[in-house]
Amino acid sequence: MTEDRMPAGKLIRPLIALACLLWFALPVPAASKKGAKRTLAFAAEMAQVGSWHEATFRWNSVLSQDGDNAHLHNNLAVAAEALGNWDEAAAYYKQALKLETDNFHIQENQRRFLIFLERLRRHADGEETAPERLVTVSGGGAKRKGKTFQVTVGLPMPPRLKLEGDESILIIDFLADETRFLDINREMVRFLRSAFRNRTAHEILDIVPPPAVPEQTIEDLLANTEFWKHLHREYGADLIVSGVLGFDREDISGYRDVDVVSPTTGQKVRQTRFVEQERFSYHIEVFFIDGKTGKLLYRDKLQRSAIIRGTQNDPITTFFDLSDTISAEVLAIVTTQIRSDTRRVFKY
């Protein structure tokens, strides 16, 4: 009579499977936890210095072993923002809040992210970027859970005009009101040429003197496609920049309530005194014209003002100071601008 025997292969395979199940059921070794903590500490250092690719790699390596860690999902969302990956950031924030609905830091990060997305949408549509619309996130009774630190992220705002990057730009005269104290046309052309040359990769055509614009109304000038195409043929300008410019100076001296320090008591007291001061008003409407077709591509209107003590202020200095405040907005039409914002990142 023969004895029934199980083949060796059939016996070994179940034993291996059982051993694997027991292995994964065991607690994570202390050495692994220490390794993860060192990895997270290094990732935090990389985030603080803006090395987001490196930080992302480290956080992902820990996430593969701890997929339900809301803090890691939050950190990866912040990194995705810094790298310009909006869809990834949205997905990570959604998962982080799913895991910890009441975490204030995650809620606040997502709220600021949604505000940025709204600003990005308005920017792309050519709308005003302020004031912001109210943005709320899900969850109530938020708690400040987890140890965090603040980081600054640079969020790229794409240009409003999508150009190839190698276009030649010609900045010509503006329709400008004459002033008795400053040639604002000459100074604006000089300022814009310098700004575009220093902060963009485009070729800036340095035509001296800058071509003058016809004496027409604004709308007639914009409709004068033959004039713009002539500039393209004459100077090889792919993009032409012009517009309307105004700069005014007004004496607004008068009696004002001012705070002064009493020489007797050393305390602040309010007194009515005659104050000499001037108001400088500045407005610019800038046009971007396609040289080949003569058609308007984009227009934007900006205004600034400044009140300065005294009546002998230098108008040139004030003009350039106010021009500096609008330069980023003008450049944002043709170049990517970085908008800085803050986020909270978890240490572990």
Rank of each mutant, 00 (worst) to 15 (best):
T148H: 04
F280K: 02
D341V: 12
K301I: 07
E88K: 15
V275W: 05
I218S: 11
A237L: 08
E178Q: 12
V258Y: 07
L117K: 08
R299G: 07
F288Q: 02
P158K: 06
H53F: 13
L231H: 03
L72R: 07
D257C: 08
E127K: 15
A41T: 13
E128R: 14
C20E: 05
M46Y: 11
R5I: 09
V78P: 01
D125E: 14
G236M: 09
R343E: 05
G35T: 08
K143H: 12
R197E: 02
C20G: 07
R5K: 10
F113L: 03
N313P: 10
L331W: 03
S327Q: 03
V151Y: 04
A19E: 13
E54Y: 04
Q277W: 01
L114D: 11
L239W: 05
E278V: 09
F346A: 06
M157C: 01
Q150S: 14
T225H: 10
L18I: 15
K292W: 10
L175F: 01
W52A: 00
Y235S: 06
Q337Y: 05
N69Y: 04
Y235T: 02
V189T: 05
L76R: 02
R190T: 13
T39M: 13
Q271T: 15
D102M: 06
I115N: 01
L21P: 00
R38K: 15
V137P: 01
L120E: 01
T272F: 08
M1N: 13
K147W: 10
A130H: 13
R119L: 13
T152V: 11
I252C: 12
M1K: 12
S281L: 04
L192R: 02
F104S: 07
D324A: 11
E250M: 10
P210A: 08
E118W: 08
A223C: 09
I218A: 12
A55H: 07
F181P: 03
K292V: 11
R309N: 15
D4M: 10
T272E: 11
L120H: 03
A223N: 12
E285Y: 02
A237P: 08
Q216G: 00
A124D: 14
G243P: 06
L26I: 09
R309W: 11
T39P: 03
L221W: 04
E88N: 15
G35R: 05
R279I: 11
F149T: 12
G243S: 01
G146Y: 05
E88G: 12
T311I: 15
I326E: 02
E164I: 03
S340C: 09
D87Q: 13
A130E: 14
D314V: 09
A70M: 04
L331C: 00
H202Q: 03
P210D: 00
F274T: 12
A212N: 11
V260C: 14
V135T: 07
D87K: 10
T39A: 14
P159V: 07
S327W: 01
T317Q: 07
P263G: 08
I12Y: 08
E100L: 10
V241G: 05
Q110V: 00
Q110S: 01
D206G: 02
L170Y: 02
P131S: 08
T129H: 01
E88A: 15
L222M: 10
N60C: 11
A19S: 15
P27Q: 00
L26G: 12
E187W: 06
G141I: 03
F280E: 00
A124T: 10
G9M: 14
S262W: 08
T325D: 13
M46T: 14
